[in-house]
Amino acid sequence: MSFLELNQVTKTFGKLAALEDIDLQVNKGEILGIVGPNGSGKTTLINIISGYFRPTKGEILFNGKKISGLRPDRIASRGIVRTFQSNVLFEGTTVIESMLISAYQQYKTNHWQSFFNTRAWKQENEEVVGRVIELIKLLDLLNDTFLPADGLSHGYQRLLGIAMAMITNPSVLLLDEPTTGMNHEEAMFVVDKIKMLREQGVTIILIEHNMKVLMGVVDRVVVLNFGTKIAEGKPEVVMNKQEVIEAYLGTELI
């Protein structure tokens, strides 16, 4: 039984099928890349796994339990957390505030303990702040801790998005094109950070348009085109397949 499993997932908008009969198995601890040209259904896939859309057909199992049809917050609290393609932040907050807002969901002490400011809450609060700081350090945001989040550079905003997802302690992290709008150097920097996250034991599904970024990080890659899966396997193998090259033909291959 695989960790996260999609069975014949289909999503249609009106008559248009954004995804058709997608079967997908994700193993625990791996980095799975999902590539495909624009409009191939990559982001729809993330939207479906994270509960933003409900699949028209098919089901999604996580640890053997059905999660398709649940609200996004239920799915997130089961440990599947996503980032967004554009820079989606809590407007007007600083880096640390954004992180704390996300972290508040993972406390073990309940709301009453927090309301009455009990010792258990204070203690846990300190622990969580410690974890926030650690994560901020890991993702190289330390110098910006008290700066407004929307004042960060594009790349750092993406990293903050990843950090906010990570602080909720996910077991699966869905990254929606974390390197869009970056030059190669910046993209590689983000990729490095993603590799470091894997060492924390999180399973990562990485959606990417840019194949060069993917090659060095992912264990496996799935190629989508027009909403269907056209290839799956080791990146070096998949990228040389005829269908894949054709799908990318006319678009920037690398």
């Binding site: 994270s50 933003y52 609200r71 996004p72 917050d73 239920r74 997130a76 609290s77 957390v81 996503r82 967004f84 989606v88 932040l89 809590f90 407007e91 007007g92 907050t93 807002i101 996300s102 969901q105 993972q106 906010m164 997802a165 909720t168």
Partner: peptide
Amino acid sequence: LNPVLAEHQGMYL
């Protein structure tokens, strides 16, 4: 501040 993001971080709005 951002209901969609909050929901995807596990907050039931």
